[in-house]
Nucleic acid binder design. Structure first.
Length: 420
RNA sequence: CGGAGUGUAGCGCAGUCUGGUAGCGCACCUGGUUUGGGACCAGGGGGUCGAAGGUUCGAGUCCUUUCACUCCGACCA
């Protein structure tokens, strides 16, 4: 992609009302913009690309774990919510409206009822179990106070998975599989995270675990053990507790951003909704369920909260909109453009996501391009400038801003190796 | 829902106290000079001052009502 053809409205000034680094930087770097209402954002080209990259990582790992991707309508009949009593329980956070025939609907904030409905209409036998179905779809919650940009929007992208089983043991097996799958997803995304014991809240059910991105700006306080892998949200453990209940080690307090949550549901939805299958003994039984969520758009904010500096975003390799930014110092210089084009094509041929900053207007000098690189936070920049007379280009790593001069012939292989 | 604040050009703001021609910076357009760390000079376009009502010869400014947004708190898979 050529920078000159892309809508990337970076700004020098920080919006006054943004507080969190991720909120400020995603706005300044042109990933998102306000859509005019609280907690509603337009995803601009860079934001859309990044969101899709993160979404793809989530999808690939779930598919690998045997889950089935489906797509449910965002508009759900309120009657489904009345079957489980959650129409009342969810309160005002559940946005309701009526169609022209005066039928009531909601904009889905989560889809337990809708997914149980899907499955009860199609799965009738224990032979069809277990089953894990998921979607990656927009959710709407009429939050009391949306805030912090993508961290707590009213409309947000969430992966929600639901598993259906004949027995509690099999559901617990799937629960463990999902925990492992989530660990793979968060690791691939390059995140530092902690799995903690959590409260089940409005979703209900027995056990639940949260996946916390460790960041000082996190809204959740968690207790972590320094000698084993135990961790818990302060919702479920006394905040003044100092000893690990699992191994007796020391507990310390830290902040986390909840980016994933997995639940053992049991039959709390399948029973009231009469979602049943016929077992081996020809008896009807309610499905034993689990449910598993990841806040995909929140992950973008979480990645930046954990990875940024005073100059801008520092995307991880799996999440960066582009891994390499080729900066042509003087885009009107034909030799520089030719060298840049060559490196660009070779990187593309190697399957690396690369953008060519070919902007040649007189307002956009070298300084602007390098500042944009640092603000947007792609992994590496290749500066094609005066050094080409000696057969060299400059390679800059965004993470530590280290620079090295490398030969034009080597730069592609060096990048392929670094990004492997 | 309680507390605090802010609405003036795409963005960031001044002007409001003390009523009298709508301002500044960034961005944008034209021309010229620049060109390795967010350039310079000259010229230019863009506003029903959040909305409604009121006071006044005259309202961005004063009064009343209302809406929206932001922050703190409570709440939150």
């Amino acid at each position: 992609m050529r920078f000159s053809r892309m809508l990337i409205p970076t700004t020098k000034e920080t919006p006054n009302d943004a507080v969190l680094a991720s909120h400020k930087l995603l706005l300044r770097a042109g990933f998102i913009q306000s859509a005019g209402g609280a907690g509603l954002y337009n995803f601009l080209p860079l934001g859309k690309i990044t969101l899709d990259k993160v979404r793809t990582v989530v999808k690939e790992e779930l598919d690998r774990a045997g889950c089935n991707e489906v797509h449910l309508p965002i508009v759900t009949p309120l009657s489904l919510w009345e079957e489980t009593g959650r129409a009342d329980k969810f309160g005002k956070e559940l946005l309701r409206f009526k169609d022209r025939h005066e039928n009531s609907f909601t904009l889905s904030p989560t889809n337990e009822e809708a997914m149980v409905n899907l499955v009860r209409q199609t799965v009738k036998s224990y032979k069809q179990l277990p089953l894990n179905v998921y979607q990656i779809n927009w959710k709407f919650r009429d939050e009391v106070r949306p805030r912090f940009g993508l961290m707590r929007g009213r409309e947000f992208l969430m992966k929600d998975a639901y598993s259906f089983h004949a027995t509690t043991e099999d559901m617990q097996r799937e629960f463990d599989l999902m925990e492992q799958t989530y660990k793979k997803i968060f690791t691939r995304l390059g995140l530092e995270f902690k799995v903690v014991e959590a409260d089940s809240g409005a979703i209900g059910g027995a056990g639940s675990k949260e996946f916390m991105i460790l960041a000082d700006s996190g809204e959740d306080t968690i207790m972590v053990c320094d000698s084993c892998d135990f961790g818990a949200n302060v919702e479920v453990i006394a905040e003044d507790e100092t000893k690990c209940p699992k191994c007796g080690g020391n507990l310390s307090q830290t902040k986390g951003i909840e980016a994933g949550h997995i639940f053992q549901l049991g039959t709390v939805y399948s029973e009231p909704m009469r979602a049943e299958f016929l077992n081996e003994n020809q008896k009807l039984e309610p499905f034993v369920m689990g449910t598993y969520g990841i806040g995909v758009s929140r992950l973008l904010a979480g990645i930046i909260e954990q990875n940024h500096d005073e100059r801008g975003c520092i995307w991880t390799e799996a999440s960066a909109p582009y891994n390499v930014d080729i900066i042509v110092a003087k885009a009107k210089n034909e030799e520089q453009m030719a060298v840049a084009q060559k490196i660009y094509s070779e990187l593309q041929a190697k399957g690396i996501d690369v953008i060519l900053d070919d902007r040649a207007d007189k307002k956009t000098g070298f300084g602007v391009k390098i500042k944009d690189f640092e603000l947007i936070g792609m992994n590496y920049a290749v500066v094609v400038g005066n050094d080409i007379s000696e057969g060299k280009v400059e390679l800059i790593a965004r993470k530590d801003l280290s620079k090295e001069i490398v030969s034009i012939e080597d730069v592609v292989n060096i990048l392929v190796e670094k990004l492997a």
